[in-house]
Nucleic acid binder design. Structure first.
Lengths: 117, 117
DNA sequence: CGGAATCCCGGTAGATACTG
DNA sequence: CAGTATCTACCGGGATTCCG
């Protein structure tokens, strides 16, 4: 087993980590994933959970997530129409990483608070 | 111990994960961190290791990283001048996360390759 | 060598209005 | 309800030039 591919990458485009982080780091994306960790959510649910997000942006995020295989989109042919978004196993796996990021970031804030004392 | 703060966040600005990922996800940043994982590097080293990066962008990244406490900047008053950048413990901790991201992303590519077969 | 200053371009994402 | 269609503004980041 050799080193991780990333080591070899020289440009951002070639680097999987860069590509992944650029994707997940786009505005609202982490919060969308976070809410979906609680279970499937409807488009309108997410809009309510994310006050300030525009319909276009939310649609963009959901499309991108689906395209990356992180979420699924299920249409229930009812009246009124119902559409549910849910994380795939891979999406949930990414959620785990977001969790570790959160822990890392909060260590920071704690240290900062301590230093400020 | 209650839930992670992130859960409570509703806007991207309030969310530590969003802020962190927006920061780390900016172009070239992961690669800069990656190279620093090998040890301290000089400005010129990094420019050579990152073909295509502009002086401004590299300076921006290094400033931001230093401001976030992820790197240190050491000036050796020699002639010609020498400046070294190195990861702090926190910076290295973030490197660990990048590593998990890399593993996550490569699972993806392997699955994709399999599906494409 | 290790940057800072300036200019500029392209893409991201927000606002708004409308539709199946 | 669950989006799409446009149009715009902002700024991240690249190219270039110059300085201590």
């Amino acid at each position: 087993m050799e080193t991780l591919q990333v080591k070899a990458a020289v440009t951002p485009e070639e680097c999987v980590v860069t590509r992944t982080l650029a994707f997940v780091g786009s505005r609202w994306t982490p919060l969308v994933i976070w809410h979906l960790l609680d279970g499937p959510r409807r488009y309108g649910d997410l809009r309510r959970l994310l006050p300030g997000i525009s319909p276009k942006t939310l649609a963009d995020r959901l499309h991108a997530l689906e395209e990356q295989g992180l979420t699924t989109r299920t249409v229930y042919p009812e009246k009124p129409p119902r559409v549910e978004y849910a994380l795939t196993p891979r999406g949930r796996a990414l959620g785990e990483i977001l969790d570790s990021v959160a822990r890392w970031a909060e260590e920071d804030e704690r240290a900062g608070a301590r230093a400020a004392t």
